[in-house]
């Protein structure tokens, strides 16, 4: 039972991460390779602030999310300066710099990681067991989905999508495309940050190996496989990613090979999708 709940919590975390990446990739067309950076800042933020300040859970939580948003401003600065391939490469550089910093810094305790991270405390009730965490993460997903549902029908979101489709047209309307990219990135950072705090509290131990370039690529491919630009896409992608190894287990494939096979299947689906439906991903509309 606990194992199923553990899988459920992981699934919920990946759903949040994929929804966050979808905001950038699907609605703003920013193929970022630094998804794990914001996730990591959320996780390390809660770990460092809660252990150094010792003032409950929620003030460190707000500080951690605040750090993610500051990082979001850096990403939006990059998005304002370079586009397309060079944006992807710049975020790739940020990802590697981030890993290098958390691996070497005294503050993050280097490769040893940080243990004993505080658990969330909701109205005096401490959340500890996998069951409680799955409910806690589920509540966050509900909040995020309700918020996004409302947000997607707002005029602001239409302009975000318009910025992706045709930046110059948006400029012609007298609107600043950089502003809409920034909003999109900040929302994405907010959601990733929440996922990071949930992961850190749930695992109660974090180290740099959870926030590598591979993780960033993985999150991005979850979105692309599920289908970007719709709310259901990232959820489907996360389901496929989490449930695939369980299916392989049923087929009696040894665990070591199953891990490789999962990545091979994932890579294969990814390549086939970008090969045969490239425009379905960035969704550039062209007039014929």
């Amino acid at each position: 039972m606990n194992y199923i709940l553990h899988i459920l919590v992981l699934l919920e975390i990946y759903i949040l991460l994929a929804i966050s990446a979808n905001q950038k990739v699907g609605f703003s067309g920013l193929l970022s390779l630094a998804q794990a950076v914001i996730y990591g800042v959320g996780a390390y933020g809660i770990a460092i602030f809660s252990s150094h300040l010792e003032i409950g859970y929620w003030i460190p939580f707000i500080l951690a999310i605040g750090s993610c948003l500051i990082l979001g401003l850096i990403f939006s600065f990059i998005a304002g300066k370079v586009i397309e391939l060079y944006f992807s490469l710049a975020t790739l550089a940020v990802q590697i710099i981030f890993f290098s910093v958390i691996y070497n810094s005294e503050l993050t305790n280097g490769s040893y990681g940080i243990s004993g991270i505080a658990s969330p405390n909701v109205f005096g009730y401490e959340i500890n067991s996998p069951l409680e965490f799955s409910i806690y993460a589920g509540v966050w997903i509900m909040i995020v989905i309700i918020f996004l549902k409302r947000f997607y029908s707002s005029p602001l979101h239409k302009l975000i999508k318009a910025t992706k489709d045709d930046e110059i047209a948006v400029l012609n309307l007298g609107k600043n495309p950089k502003y809409y990219k920034r909003i999109s990135i900040l929302i994405s950072c907010l959601i990733s940050g929440i996922a990071g705090t949930i992961y850190a509290s749930y695992a109660s131990y974090i180290d740099p190996s959870s926030f590598t370039l591979d993780e960033s690529i993985l999150i991005l491919s979850i979105v692309l496989i599920g289908g970007s630009g719709r709310l259901i896409g990232p959820i489907v992608g996360a389901l496929i990613y989490i449930l695939l190894p369980e299916i392989l287990k049923f087929l009696n494939i040894p665990e070591m090979i199953a891990a490789n096979m999962r990545m091979i299947l994932f890579g294969l689906i990814l390549v086939l999708i970008v090969r045969f439906r490239p425009n379905g991903i960035l969704g550039k509309k062209t007039f014929k």
Binding site: L31, E84, S221, L224, L270, V271, V274, P278, I281, L282
Partner: peptide
């Protein structure tokens, strides 16, 4: 005419 960042993903 795929976007170069998409070929990067491939």
């Amino acid at each position: 005419n795929t976007d170069p960042s998409v070929t990067l993903i491939a």
